[in-house]
């Protein structure tokens, strides 16, 4: 009798607290990008109170000039991390791409448009090599892209003999496209901000609303499960490596045009700065959970921190202590939120 009742109840194969858990599931307030956003606001308020110049048009313009360059790379890195991989070669690609473009223009007399295209093709090739080795040979992306960092940075240094190149500074279509500037009131913005906004919208769309985004999250969350459902995991990853490399190269060109110099050591350390932006925004380093909005918040946060602590008067050599502490605090916060949200 007792047994019979039990078997009938089991029919439902579910537990009673199903509804309760569904309700308590991570709402907007507890989502990582939201907590990052709150902390960003707090930081901005603290810096603004500590130094009146922080929110001045000049300073905001300055921050907005830098922001897109790292931010654009961070968008690609977010998608890649969500699929469960990352790329340490972005900082080196950031340097090599404009260096190659400038060498082609200055030494080989190649048309600037053609040179830019060649630079982007080189980025595609680098990304494809990363992706193919990681997926087809099965070496971890840490090792593959670390080696690629050395190769690419070494190549940039070798072909320039270590000297920075003067960048293309004649006005024209491509300069305007990549590094043109415009004023809104007292603010001065670069076209790179439009690139960042446009690419951000695209990335939000892809990750949240497109079929591809579903695949990317599934691959990072449980690759074998995704493959078992017919998702072409390797191809998706290879394309994401290509995208990340391409965005790193684009960012490098934007930067080189803005400051009219292409340096073989540009972007040193950017790979870690970009990964920090992404994880501070709430994307999981282990894959499966990615948020573009979080990355935008993370990019703003790291930019604001670097800028703010200078204004506040923290000694230059102590910058990284603060940056590191704030990143660590953010990660601990995310981990605690995640622990509350998931039962295991």
């Amino acid at each position: 009798m007792v047994q019979q009742v039990m078997v009938q109840q089991v029919g439902a194969v579910t537990s009673e607290d199903g509804a309760g858990r569904a309700k308590g599931r991570s709402s907007l307030m507890r989502s990582p990008q939201f907590s990052s956003f709150v902390i960003l606001i707090v930081l901005l308020v603290v810096f603004a109170l500590a130094d009146g110049n922080f929110l001045s048009p000049l300073n905001i313009s300055n921050m907005m000039a830098f922001l897109p360059e790292l931010g654009i790379i961070a968008l690609g890195m977010t998608l890649l991390l969500t699929a469960g991989e990352f790329d340490l070669s972005v900082g080196a690609v950031f340097a090599l791409a404009p260096v190659v473009v400038m060498l082609l223009v200055q030494n080989a007399g190649v048309d600037i448009g053609v040179a830019l295209l060649a630079g982007l093709l080189l980025c595609i090739a680098i990304g494809a090599i990363n992706g193919v080795i990681v997926t087809k040979i099965g070496i971890s992306s840490f090792l593959v892209t670390l080696s690629m960092l050395l190769i690419v940075r070494g190549a940039a240094l070798y072909i320039t003999q270590g000297f920075p190149l003067k960048s293309w500074d004649q006005p024209g279509f491509f300069v305007t496209l990549l590094a043109g500037s415009f004023n809104i009131g007292a603010f001065r913005f670069y076209t790179s901000l439009w690139w960042f906004i446009g690419l951000s919208l695209l990335a939000v769309y892809v990750l949240r609303y497109a079929k591809l985004g579903n695949w990317i999250s599934a691959i990072g969350s449980n690759r074998n499960a995704a493959v078992a459902r017919g998702v072409p995991a390797d191809a998706v990853k290879i394309w994401l490596f290509i995208l990340t490399s391409l965005l790193a190269g684009l960012a490098g060109m934007i930067s080189a045009f803005r400051i009219s110099a292409a340096s073989p050591v540009a972007g040193t350390g950017y790979e870690l700065e970009v990964i920090a932006m992404v994880v501070v925004g709430g994307t999981a380093l282990t894959g499966g959970r990615g948020t573009i909005l979080g990355t935008i918040v993370g990019a703003l946060m790291l930019r604001a921190i670097r800028n703010g602590i200078v204004l506040v008067g923290v000694p230059g050599l102590a910058y990284n202590i603060f940056v590191g502490v704030i990143i660590l605090a953010m990660l601990i916060l995310h981990a605690l939120l995640q622990k509350n949200a998931t039962r295991s």
């Binding site: 079929k211 579903n214 695949w215 999250s217 599934a218 990072g220 969350s221 449980n222 074998n224 499960a225 995704a226 078992a228 459902r229 017919g230 998702v231 999981a284 499966g288 959970r289």
Partner: peptide, 24 residues
């Protein structure tokens, strides 16, 4: 249709997204 021993669902996706994974 196969339900594999070790792998079947992506934990970070919703039930609905898992149900239609690959056939969205």
């Amino acid at each position: 249709e196969t339900i594999h021993q070790d792998t079947s669902l992506a934990p970070d996706l919703s039930i609905a997204r898992n149900l239609f994974l690959g056939r969205e």
